[in-house]
Every structure is written in C-alpha cells, then in structure tokens.
Design a protein around this nucleic acid. Structure first.
Lengths: 205, 205
DNA sequence: ATTTGATAATTTTGTTTAAAAAGTCAGGAA
DNA sequence: TTCCTGACTTTTTAAACAAAATTATCAAAT
C-alpha cells in the first residue's frame, strides 16, 4: 500500500486545510477556487488535478471533519458508563461540532435543496455510527437490568435521536431556513440535555 | 352587537368557503383572485371590499381553520382521563388536521421565509392552547400522584411538544423543504405515538 | 352599504448581456 | 510518468430591461 505520507497526500492535505479555512470563514458560495489556489500559492488548475470539481473538494473536507467527529464520539461514548451519559456525550459532541464549524454549513443554508448525494452519505454514516454506539450502550443497560427490555434497540435509538434532533427554538424570527441560528445553539443544547434525562428515565425499570 | 348572521357576514363566509376550496386544491400561489371571484359569480373588486388583500384573505381562512382546530382539540383533551391520553388526543388531532388540509399549506412550502406576522400569531395561539390544555392535564396527573412533580409544567410541556414536533422521516429524498411530505405523515404519526409513551413513562413516579 | 368595469400598480416571468467563476487542456518541468 | 501552469473555453451569476400576468384601486352605478 502507498504511504499516507506520500508527497501527493501531503499536498492534498494542505489543499483540504486551506479549503476548510476558506469555507469556514466565507462559506461555500463566497469561496472561489482562485482564492484557495492563491492561499496555497499554486495554480487553480492544480486544484483540479487533485479534485474533480469544487463540490467534491467540499465533500472531501466534510469527510475529514466527519472522520474526526466519529473518532471523538466513539472515544467519548466508550468512556461512558451508562446509557444516559452516552447520550450526553453524543449531545455534547454534536453541539461542539456545530458551534466550531457553524459557518462551514453555509452550504446547507444556501443550497437547501439538492445537496450532493455524497454529503447525504456522510451524514448517513455519522448517523449510523451514532445509532450503533448508543444502541450498544442501551443493550448494556438492558443486560445490567438498568432499563427494561426493548424490542428493537436500534429503532428505539433512531426514534430518540430523531426527537432530539427535532428540538428547535421557538423564535419570533421565523425567517430564513430550517437550519438553526448560531445564537440558538446553546439553548437547543440545554433543551436536549433536559429531554434525554426524561427519556432515559422513561426507559428505566 | 351585530348578529353573526347579518347579510354581509353571510357573504363573507361564502367568500371564505370558496377561497378555502381553491387554496386547498391549488395552493396559495396557483389561486388567483379572479378565479375565486369567478367561483362566486362576483367581481374581483368585491373581494377587495371584504378583504384588504389576498394574503389577509388567506389569513382569514386560516383563522377559521384554527378556530375549528382549537375547538376540537379542547373537546378531545377535556374527554381525556390522564396525561398520556391527552397527549394522544393532541397528536391525533394534529395528524388529522394535517392530512385533511395538507395542500392548503403549499403557502408555507413556497414562501418558506417571510410568512406574514398574522400567520405566526395564529400558530402561536394554537401552540399556546396546546400548552395550556396539556399542562393542565399534567398538573392533574401530578396532583393524582401519577407522575412526579415538575418545576414548571408549562416549560415541560413546551419541551415535549417541541420534541414531538421535531420527529421527521429519515428519507432518501432529502430534497425540497423542511415541510413533511404527505406520504410521510402516517409514519410521523406512529413515531410520535411511540415517543409520547416513553416520555410519559419517564415522567412517572 | 354594495357592487362593478375600467384602469393603475405591482409582481412574475422571460430575455439579453456582461462579468465572474468554474472547469479544461496542451504542453513544460521535475 | 507524475506534477504543475498559463491560456483558454464553458458555465454560472447578476443586472437591466421588457412583456405578461396578477394584484389592487377607484369613480361611478345600484
């Protein structure tokens, strides 16, 4: 196998880093390929040597973020002793991720519809991972007799994540997209923590 | 006070009925004032005698729907014996309302942003009513010793409604607006019923 | 107080055009 | 052969304008 430290991979990483900074600061549509190339003191054409097009470059950056996200989440959930703390770790991790990378997701606000399939795959993978980690934690608690048996743990976790994800802020400024505003993230975070406690309690014996 | 059966009110009602049919069948943007007037065999100008503009006509129709909605909900919740059945009545009523009037809400899908303030007021009133009815049911269950005491019942209900409202369908067709697709309404309905059972159980002693 | 035909004002839709950005390619350098 | 670029072409975006559709108004009639 080729080393991950091969020169072309190094350069690829540099491109991803520079792109991430631009996307994070200015958003997808306000970032041009010329600017990214300029930041790296290379020609725009070279970007197209490494990536087929702009959207795939964005996808690659997102993939990197997702990998980090999943790694940190796995680590945190593994360190959890019970279902409740596993959920709290998930909520915490998600909140952290959103706050840190908020502007990066301009892409979603502006495009809204017709997001490339690759993006949905990444989101699907993240979601799948969350379900696996949390349903493991659920099964453990069931086995330990902490919560009542659940027919299909995976479905149960899916449902709860769905409910948690749906928590929004009842704001007067109902303008704009369904994407939460940055100033609401903390409130949503708190609400989710409150909710999950009730939820897990509801699962208890 | 003037009778609700005064001739001008009768005509007003006829206009509202005809408008509702048009809006329900074709949606807001595909309904013209000429068509509504045509249905009623009256001049378009007369519509403007009764309503200041098209959006206020839509609001008036919606107001009528909302009044019905609230009345039925109040009735159903009053007939409930405990918190769980009260919630089920709410979920049921909401689902019914959405299925029946689905196309009427094209307005929301198309306008998406900048919905007139009056609409938000109506939605706010509905939500307020739901909170009042359900928090009453909650307090009753607390008093009956069925569930543990809650600090601020109204906030608790608000939070739960928020979570229930957030339930969506994890579909491949992530296209289009955040407004649920008609073919997903039943699935959402079932999920909410499952969720609320866990929730109320979580509140229990 | 109600109603309308005629008309005014606004919004939507479509077209054109210029600029900006995305994307391509033949060929040079390592 | 892999990496890289300048110059080029194609596509997208934005502004300006006109035509058509629709909303909204109003003087006059009932």
């Amino acid at each position: 196998m080729s080393s991950v430290n091969a020169p072309q991979d190094i350069k690829r990483e540099k491109i991803l880093d520079a792109s991430y900074q631009r996307f994070l600061h200015y958003g997808y549509s306000k970032t041009t390929m010329n600017e990214i190339a300029g930041d790296l003191a290379m020609s725009k054409a070279l970007l197209y040597y490494y990536f087929p097009d702009k959207s795939q470059l964005y996808v690659a950056v997102m993939n990197k973020l997702a990998t980090d996200f999943i790694n940190v989440l796995t680590e945190k959930v593994a360190a959890s002793t019970d279902l409740l703390s596993a959920f709290k770790a998930q909520i915490d991790n998600h909140h952290n991720f959103m706050v840190t990378n908020y502007n990066f997701f301009d892409f979603f606000r502006l495009n809204e519809q017709n997001i490339p399939a690759e993006i949905w795959e990444i989101i699907g993978t993240i979601h799948q991972t969350e379900i696996e980690l949390l349903s493991d934690a659920l099964v453990k608690d069931v086995d330990a007799g902490k919560v009542t048996a659940v027919e299909v743990p995976v479905d149960m976790i899916d449902l709860i994540l769905d409910a948690l994800h749906g928590v929004k802020v009842r704001a007067m400024s109902h303008k704009k997209t369904g994407f939460p505003l940055k100033e609401h993230l903390d409130e949503i975070y708190q609400k989710r923590l409150t909710l999950i406690e009730i939820f897990v309690k509801g699962l208890g014996c």
